[in-house]
Simulated scan of single mutants.
Amino acid sequence: MLLMRRRCRLRSRRRELLLLVVVVFGLVIIAYYLMMNENDVEKQPPCTVSQEQRRRLYPLLSTVSSLLSRLSITHFLCYDSLWGAIQESGPLPWDVHAHLCALNEKVSVHDEAELLRAFRRRGLTLEYSSADGQYTIRNSTGETGNIEVPTVRVVLFEEDDRLHMLRRVGWRRRVLPPDCDAHPTLQCFPPNLAALPLPMRPFGPLSLPAPREDIDLLKFHYPDTWWRPLQPHC
């Protein structure tokens, strides 16, 4: 009887030991696959821009720039597109859209109907946000499944005589006091950075106007991060 009890306890301990080995082995396998998946995620780019999106962006941007030039509207690369021109000689790898800045005094000599007609003739739509002081321009046709359609965003600036600085337009900013240091959202920068003639910079297959001192403009638009490469924000 005693011998049978000992055998039962031994069998129970063996089962417990075998179960423990199985559990530990399973945990090791799970941890391994989690580490492999984490490494795969780290190796993948944070955002992907398809060749189709790139193929659509360049002719759109070229058309917009040529139209602005024909209308005598001073414009130049800015924001993420200026970063891309400096870092990549083209769009940032994760950026579907393009940014241009333009002088509002050159835009305001044209009425809205004239601008709409000029862009519509080239198959483009023009939407203006009075709150943000920004035009968004896209092809009037060309929705491609579920992918994000490239646009060109033209941000308007005008000179404030009290500040002797260019500041972004839009009613959200007009209510702010004219103090660039106290209100970074005014996105001020000196007028000399947009003085003609503007230099040209490579941007993919294109050559586009850029500010006179590109790093100086980035210092104003990215005061806390201008000294390091821009990181993905998608």
Rank of each mutant, 00 (worst) to 15 (best):
Phe76Arg: 06
Leu206Asp: 02
Cys8Thr: 12
Leu10Thr: 11
Arg14Gln: 11
Ala102Pro: 11
Leu217Gly: 01
Leu20Glu: 15
Ser50Glu: 12
Thr185Leu: 05
Trp227Thr: 03
Pro45His: 06
Gly133Ser: 06
Leu196Trp: 07
Gly90Leu: 06
Leu218Tyr: 01
Glu105Arg: 14
Ala182Phe: 08
Pro190Gly: 05
Pro184Ala: 07
Val175Phe: 12
Gly90Cys: 07
Arg56Thr: 03
Ala182Ile: 10
Asp80Val: 10
Leu57Thr: 08
Pro209Glu: 02
Glu143His: 09
Thr225Gly: 01
Leu77Gln: 09
Asp132Asn: 05
Leu27Arg: 12
Phe119Met: 14
Phe25Ile: 04
Arg5Ile: 08
Ala131Asp: 11
Pro229Asn: 08
Leu196Met: 09
Tyr222Lys: 01
Ala118Gln: 12
Pro177Arg: 11
Leu186His: 04
Pro184Cys: 06
Leu20Tyr: 12
Arg212Leu: 15
Gly133Gln: 02
Phe157Val: 03
Tyr33Pro: 00
Glu213Lys: 13
Arg5Leu: 00
Arg174Gly: 04
Ala98Pro: 03
Leu71Gly: 08
Pro205Met: 00
Ile29Pro: 00
Ala194His: 03
Ser69Thr: 15
Glu143Ser: 04
Arg153Leu: 05
Arg13Thr: 04
His99Asp: 14
Leu71Ile: 09
His183Trp: 08
Pro229Ala: 07
Thr74Arg: 13
Asp111Arg: 08
Val96Phe: 06
Arg162Lys: 14
Tyr33Ala: 04
Leu61Val: 06
Gln134Glu: 11
Arg173Val: 03
Val107Leu: 06
Ala195Pro: 00
Pro209Gly: 04
Val24Tyr: 12
Pro209Gln: 04
Met36Gly: 02
Pro205Asn: 00
Thr185Tyr: 03
Arg54Gln: 10
Pro46Leu: 09
Leu57Val: 06
Ser66Val: 09
Glu114His: 12
Ala102Glu: 12
